[in-house]
Design a protein around this nucleic acid. Structure first.
Lengths: 343, 343
DNA sequence: CGCTTTTATGTAATCGTTTGCGTCGATGCT
DNA sequence: AGCATCGACGCAAACGATTACATAAAAGCG
């Protein structure tokens, strides 16, 4: 069917070893024959068979990237950074989407292993059984998620600090009943944000209230629904701290429809810092994670592990997020305003 | 290094042909031995080597997807649909991003061919030389872009009609100086939208004015810049029809900052129908393309071509877009309002 | 000129599978 | 019992490259 080095060898009157040498630019072939071989290859529209090459090289020059939801711009940006960085190093990227399903994630990991990707970058859906899974994986991996595992590098944002930072900001705005509109209950990142939230509350003499915490999928529909639920309750919160920006956009949508003044009577905050949060009409207050840096760092870490350049140490990289205070938070008006001191 | 069928064969005391048969579930092996082999395989944590398998099968069970910019939610949604559909059929997806660079696109295509993907889905960056390129490509392809080529299937939206539809809508709002904030000048889709725009103008007795048409990258920065340029001119337009939603969001941003009333004194429209266009605070009027359907259809077409199920005819699928009239367009106020009739 | 060293080229093994073919024993049929 | 049929299994040839090793010719050198 397709042209192989044997065809070229026959046509050029040499052995196929010489063809291989000429094509890969290795020495051991005279300028003259090399030139002739390259000519024949071009004439026959030859394309080297990567699969055969990979088989003998024991390298596929391919990276796996497993994300929960690339329709979320947060992950799309990470994917873009990974693809770019990989490409610069001569690697292609197989992308798969778990839809936040642990079973899908597991299946994808097995498939990646079968496909013999040289390594995999994974945003794990859930937390359980980290170590066991990654040790048996049998291929270099970098997690986009902090894990204590001794065998795998990770790149993550300090979610606890992000949660803390935002909660302090909301307290500074005068909010006292801060609801947390969380993402999936077994998402570790989300739980860490929640921890930061609780710490900030306690530091300011408030007791975290389980009634004010809800979980659900990382979708705007969920944000809308949870916001509605909270705001129609009999003691509505004065702030909604959302597990991510997409949820926050849904919450914002509800607030708008319900005619609630943001931020005068309700502060809304997100997490991630996706670019749509900064639109003039939105200006959502959020915690910015450096997505490009995360993608690049993870990819470079993985490439180092694969190519054995750098020390093969397991690295834990924790990036510090920043507060992006925009229009959806600010000094709130409350009739029963209490005097508050905050550092 | 890693476990192969030979290891299993030795361990189980059979030939490796039997192992292969047992693992792939082919007959020719007794229940008894099969069970023993599978046990050994599990015990040794065996993972079949996809590369070797692909070499002999002449199939990689991998699709290539080449998009200009996955950080644009329009393409991210398409990517998601493709990945899902491919996965259901047992195919993995290699994703690459051209950044709208023809040279990158060309390089990616060659890489995909080397990698022996079974087929490729491509949103071409530009128009030139379609036919030649795809015939020599040597692998099944589906374009996300209408092309007259005899050799390649395509799935696309009727951009001309979309442009027409939107322009008629804007005219219906009373707009008379409708500027077109286009994307890249060699993007065919964009030019088709422009054609529809011109047709609608002419049908309503207006002459398209080249002064009102500008091109640039498909980014919000460009939308912002072009909007500024137009609106600071001495005869500003009364509507901005943008080449896509991302551009429109940038234009909207400028309008907001400049304190221009939308839609009372300026209508703004986009193209694509990304989900962020429908946020309560934005409600951008746009032309909705069915991204999921596009991704699914393209993938199914490609899979049919690969697996030779359906008739191997080249198909040209043109989807009809719909107008999504939201808050950024509407009856505009103009002192010098002229009587206009529109069907 | 004879020796070693270098360079060009060919031969064949290898990577880990799948699969056509041959062998052999067991089973079915008359 | 004799013969065709069938199932289980092993052997070995692909698939298309890379590369260690062998070999022969050319070049370098005293």
């Amino acid at each position: 069917m397709s042209v192989t080095i044997k065809d070229i060898a026959r046509e050029a009157g040499v052995s196929y070893a010489s063809v291989s040498r000429a094509l890969s630019g290795n020495r051991g072939v005279s300028m003259e024959t090399s030139k002739r071989i390259l000519e024949v290859a071009k004439r026959l529209n030859y394309s080297p068979n990567g699969i055969a090459r990979h088989l003998v090289n024991q390298r596929s020059k391919t990276l796996g990237l497993i994300l929960p939801d690339i329709s979320n711009p947060f992950f799309a940006d990470i994917a873009l950074a990974v693809i770019h960085t990989a490409e610069k190093a001569g690697y292609q990227t197989i992308l798969s989407n778990t839809d936040w399903e642990p079973r899908t994630q597991e299946r994808q990991l097995l498939l990646m292993r079968e496909q013999r990707v040289d390594g995999v970058i994974l945003k794990p859906v859930q937390d359980a059984g980290d170590d066991i899974a990654y040790e048996n994986l049998g291929l270099p991996a970098v997690l986009l998620h902090y894990s204590g595992s001794k065998v795998v590098s990770c790149v993550d944002t300090d979610h606890e600090y992000g949660g803390y930072l935002m909660t302090r900001h909301l307290l500074g705005c005068g909010c006292r009943r801060i609801a947390f509109l969380g993402g999936l209950p077994d998402s570790r990142s989300n739980l860490q944000r929640l921890e930061g939230y609780a710490r900030a509350l306690r530091e300011n003499g408030l007791t975290p209230d389980a009634q004010l915490v809800r979980h659900g999928p990382f979708t705007s529909e969920n944000g809308y629904a949870l916001a509605k639920e909270f705001l129609q309750g009999h003691t509505p919160p004065d702030a909604l701290f959302c597990g991510n920006d997409v949820i926050a956009l849904g919450a914002l949508q509800y607030a708008q429809e319900a005619g609630i003044q943001v931020p005068q009577s309700l502060c809304i905050a997100g997490f991630d810092g996706i670019s749509y949060a900064s639109l003039a009409q939105i200006r959502l207050t959020t915690i910015r994670q450096d997505r490009q840096r995360m993608g690049e760092t993870a990819t470079n870490l993985l490439l180092d592990a694969i190519e054995g350049n750098a020390a093969p140490t397991v690295q834990k990289i924790l990036l510090t997020p920043t507060l992006l205070a925009q229009a959806t938070t600010g000094e709130i008006n409350r009739s029963e305003s209490l005097p508050i001191e905050i550092d």
